[in-house]
Write a protein that binds this DNA or RNA. Structure first.
Length: 991
RNA sequence: GCCCGCGUGGCGGAAAGGCAGACGCAACGGACUUAAAAUCCGUCGGUCGAAAGGCCAUGUGGGUUCGAUUCCCACCGCGGGCACCA
């Protein structure tokens, strides 16, 4: 009689909720208990409900949390809802419902599913990012960002007031581009003689300039820049949300469009975001993804003068094609600023044979001579109209145009032609490069196409002596590695590293170069033209100048709107809420102020939710400092790898700002992070039939059919008339069919016949989605939990297989039978306080040790295997020793909590086992008095011997050599070496 | 193209450089049953052999080692990330 999981699971779920069994203790109540903060990436409550990935994620952390409570730790294990965002809003529009209502429905469903799976969350700490009492503090943190700046001296965020003080005290001055730098002379800039002063003092600025300077330094600022505009979604998107030129949500095309948007100055933290990765226990691959995304490159900026000589050939120079028509340089040539390029290889400067500007580069207009204007304009228009996607697909073929002007290489005064080409991006570096075709793949391709000279200036290390390349020597491909400088007078013979430094220093002395660090990371585009997000706590004047509203005015709630649809233009839906937009406050003595109508992106709420869990109901602060200090950092954070450069980067950034401002106590939020592996759909099999007969899947199959199978395209049941006149058919098989046919024609192990077996990502369209609701209904939450953990290592990708769950069901039933007995039999009589037989006792202690180790190391699959083994051992025993029954029950509890609670009750306990001590093992009981040793001859196993655990080596070797099966292998041979690895094995090396 | 991870039975997967295949699924044989389900006992990488036992096996080929699934090199295949970032 199997146990009734439906009733038992429901009963304990109610018990846990009613008794608040998993409530985390606040620091004041915790006494000496060690704390542990175990966190999941909280779900986005989509309409589809919980999926298997959630189950895997939450079960893993749940096991840890339950285990840690059982060993006496104070565990914070919360959940909540990341409920703002595009998908709900899109769905709301489609189904003509309100996102608020839809979100509430979805949350209810998620909560039900999570509780049904027996997760041990502290439900008193549930948070919802769309709840005004929550997003009040999201807005508050935004104000912190708005009211602070990144201080160049202290390299950290500081209140904006500090900046104003430093400027007023003239410790800082304002650069020509509006940047703030330290005052080069404390005594006053008048002291610098003979220099043209470009920096200005605070008091020299007009009130407007003062204001612009301050606003330009804020960590949250507005800027009108080309942004990712997605017409399909009616909003702009962050770089991180655009994949291959399409929106991550919905897959709509994205185009560049200049718009005034809110930006967060994440780039200020680029260095710290990279450096602090080292202190984190995160998967190496994920750290690498963040490093690549931030993309730090060290190099130099070098200034190239634009050639101002009158005689300038207007046509592109070609090899062996001397300057043609000389024309006058266009107007204003004497005032053209030098063009600054960024390079990571300043050591190749002598090899620069041309220069390239991005099509959007502001200097293009100034330096293009009249007769080239038309051509250049045409190219710019064409390049500008290309979507990012086209630009990517076109990357193979280089395009560009000669501008008609030349630059002077500062190292050798050579005149090099200037091109524009779209392979140089305005958004990175300076938007201009020096092109060294001999040592860069892209420049090489371009130079080949436009027939530009290629000059080698770096030689491979090994070949320096033998073959010094001459400028004319033809390479057959670019040499992009480091090596030794050649054909470069001032650095010849130097290794790349040294050459870089030397040449940069040399040019720096003349003020034409300096060391520079560039990042791929851009500032975070933080506003969206959508309704379902946090409103900005900002008001604007008629010039779009932004003012923060006061903390006391928070939360600024979303107006309830009937029509929240995107406007189809850059005007956000909130711009239709005319009444809501009106703003008046005695604090700001201005009229005509209106509210900012953009909203924050989905990521805002998830940037700090882990802090709110520490103190979820606090009405006065986003988190109480004492509680924050107690719980932070998160000790274990588990979630999918898809957030590698989104949530995980954004949250680290916010956290660092809050740290700088003294609001949190740790530099990093998540000290240990684990990515659970994707759960794929069930394996699909495909075989091939020819004229209705199964045939070998291999060389005999039509190539078109074979490639369709191998690329995973489903063409099952589709008949194809082959060129050979035969009917070909690809047939999908279930696992059962494949198994059945093992003795028949389609046999997976038969090398002549291959049945293609693959698994794919779960998707509705493929129909391979396993639904947690159904699995729990059919097999129980305990069995479902066990199965998702037993499938394989947590971090590994693995295919779902419903068939296998029955193994876990049988295991639980067996435990039940062993400890409770069959219905008809006397139930309690099975358990008696008798001594455990020695061998079984030893196994029990080993299991206790192993299971604890496995849980701590997140090796749940092998931990469960140990429990199954122990249970198998007691299967069939008439009487079960009480101690063993209790140990097994307690060890089972983190994995299968419902049945464990019920068994615990059955064993005569009246209270939950949630905080009952975990069984301890006795090290003395782990050792055996005798041990079995494998005996090898030349590394091959030949026999096993049993010896006393403390036997001497000599005795063991002697016994091994005498063992029955080993003797023949040693007979007539010389034993060259006798090896004894203590407690491991014996190996004889014979000749 | 570059970077990272992974290749072990029919399947999911175990193995601090030391007995390859723990544990589960499937399959097969048996017990119980009128029967089925459930349960219990047993077999279960390939190959040769009646058996004892031998030989071959952790993607492929080399290397280090007394000994390699594990470490090193090269190649092949799969999965993921990045992709004109100068």
């Amino acid at each position: 009689m199997p146990y009734n999981f439906t009733a038992i699971e429901k009963k304990w779920q109610k018990y846990w909720l009613d008794h608040k069994t998993f409530a985390a203790l606040d620091p004041a109540e915790a006494g000496g208990m060690p704390k542990s903060y175990v966190l999941d990436m909280f779900p986005y409550p989509s309409g589809a409900g919980l999926h298997m990935g959630h189950m895997e994620n939450y079960t893993a952390t749940d096991i840890i949390a339950r285990y840690q409570r059982m060993i006496g730790m104070n565990v914070l294990h919360p959940t909540g809802w990341d409920a703002f965002g595009l998908p709900a809003e899109q769905y709301a529009i489609k189904t003509n419902r309100h996102p608020r209502e839809l979100t509430e429905t979805n949350i209810k469903n998620f909560r039900r599913q999570i509780q049904m799976a027996g997760m041990s969350y502290d439900w008193d700490r549930e948070v919802d990012t769309t709840d005004p009492t929550y997003y009040k503090w999201t807005q508050w943190i935004f104000l912190q960002l708005f009211n602070s700046y990144f201080d160049p001296m202290n390299q950290k965020a500081m209140p904006i007031g500090h900046l104003v003080n430093e400027l007023m005290n003239e410790n800082y001055v304002v650069g020509p581009d509006g940047s703030v730098v330290t005052n080069p002379t404390q005594e006053g800039m008048e002291a610098i003689t003979g220099e043209v002063r470009t920096e200005r003092l605070w008091r020299e600025l007009s009130p407007e300039e003062q204001r612009d300077t301050i606003d330009g330094q804020r960590l949250a600022y507005t800027d009108e820049i080309p942004v990712n505009w997605c017409p399909g979604l009616g909003t702009v998107l962050a770089n991180e949300e655009v994949i291959d030129g399409k929106s991550e949500v919905g897959g709509f095309p994205v185009e560049k469009r200049p718009l005034r948007q809110w930006m967060l100055r994440i780039t200020a933290y680029a260095d710290r975001l990279i450096a602090d990765l080292n202190q984190l226990q995160w998967p190496e691959s994920l750290k690498e993804m963040q490093r690549n995304w931030i993309g730090r490159s060290v190099g130099a900026e070098v200034d190239f003068e634009v050639a101002t000589v009158a005689a300038t050939p207007a046509s592109p120079p070609r090899k062996g094609d001397a300057g043609v028509a000389a024309t006058e340089e266009s107007e204003g040539s004497d005032e053209i600023d030098p063009i600054t390029v960024f390079t990571t290889r300043p050591d190749t400067l002598y090899g620069a044979t041309y220069m390239v500007l991005a099509p959007e580069h502001p200097l293009v207009d100034r330096i293009t001579p009249a007769e080239r204007r038309e051509t250049i304009e045409a190219y710019r228009t064409q390049a500008g109209s290309k979507s990012d996607r086209d630009r990517m697909t076109d990357a193979k073929e280089k395009t560009g145009e000669f501008i008609g002007a030349y630059a002077i290489n500062p190292i050798n005064d050579e005149k090099i032609p200037i091109y524009i080409a779209d392979y140089v991006l305005m958004g990175y570096g300076t938007g201009a490069i020096m092109a060294v075709p001999a040592h860069d793949e892209r420049d090489w391709e371009f130079a080949k196409k436009f027939d530009i000279p290629i000059k080698a200036v770096v030689a491979p290390l090994s070949s320096t002596q033998s073959s010094v390349l001459s400028p004319q020597s033809s390479l057959d491909r670019p040499f992009t590695n480091e090596g030794v400088a050649i054909n470069s007078p001032i650095i010849n013979g130097m290794k790349t590293e040294e050459a870089k430094e030397h040449i940069t220093a040399f040019l720096a002395a003349d003020g034409v170069a300096h060391r520079a660090i560039k990042y791929k990371l851009r500032d975070w585009l933080f506003s969206r033209q959508r309704y379902w997000g946090e409103p900005f706590p900002i008001v604007l004047d008629e010039k779009d100048q932004a003012y923060a509203i006061d903390e006391s005015e928070l939360p600024l709630t979303l107006p309830p709107m009937e029509d929240f649809k995107p406007t189809g233009t850059a005007a956000p839906p909130l711009s239709k809420a005319k009444e809501w937009m009106k703003y008046e406050s005695p604090r700001i003595a201005m009229r005509g102020l209106v509210r900012e109508t953009n909203t924050m992106p989905q990521w805002a709420g998830s940037c700090w939710y882990y802090l709110r869990y520490c103190d979820p109901k606090n009405p006065d602060r986003f988190v109480d400092p004492e509680k924050e200090k107690y719980w932070m950092p998160v000790d274990l954070y588990v979630g999918g790898v898809e957030h590698a450069v989104l949530h995980l980067l954004y949250a680290r950034f916010w956290h660092k700002v809050l740290f700088d401002l003294g609001h949190v106590s740790t530099r990093e939020p998540f000290s240990r992070l684990v990515n659970q592996g994707l759960i794929l759909g069930e394996v699909e099999y495909r075989g091939v039939k020819k004229d209705g007969e199964w045939i070998a899947y291999g060389e005999q199959v039509l190539p078109s059919i074979r490639s369709a199978i191998e690329s995973g395209m489903l063409i099952s049941a589709e008949e194809i008339l082959g060129s050979d006149g035969c009917k070909w058919q690809v047939v999908s098989l279930s696992a059962e069919e494949v198994t059945k046919r093992q003795d028949g024609f389609v046999l997976s192990s038969n090398p002549a016949i291959r049945v293609d077996a693959r698994s794919f990502k779960m998707s509705k369209s493929r129909g391979n989605v396993a639904n947690p609701d159904e699995i729990i209904r059919d097999y129980g939450a305990d069995a479902a939990r066990l199965y998702v953990m037993y499938m394989g290592p947590l971090e590994q990708q693995k295919p779902w297989n419903t068939r296998d769950i029955v193994g876990m069901v049988r295991f639980l039933n067996a435990v039940w039978r062993n400890l409770v007995g069959d219905e008809e039999k006397n139930r309690v009589a099975k358990i008696k306080p008798i001594a455990i037989p020695e061998a079984l006792d030893r196994q029990m202690h080993r299991t206790i040790k192993k299971v604890a180790e496995d849980i701590a190391a997140l090796r749940f699959n092998t931990g469960i295997a140990e429990l199954i083994k122990l249970n198998n051992e007691i299967t069939g025993m008439e009487i079960i020793p009480r101690e063993l029954a209790e140990s097994l029950t307690l060890m089972l509890a983190p994995f299968a909590p419902h049945i464990a609670e019920e068994l615990w009750l059955h064993l005569g306990h009246t209270k939950t086992l949630a905080r009952r001590p975990w069984p301890t093992f006795d090290p003395a009981k782990l050792v055996e008095s005798t041990m079995e040793l494998p005996v090898q001859v030349n590394g091959k196993l030949r026999d096993k011997i049993t010896v006393a655990a403390d036997a001497e080596e000599a005795l063991i070797l002697e016994q091994a050599a005498r063992s029955e099966k080993v003797v023949p292998w040693l007979a007539g041979k010389t034993v060259k070496k006798k090896l004894y690895v203590p407690k491991k094995l014996v190996n004889f090396v014979v000749g």
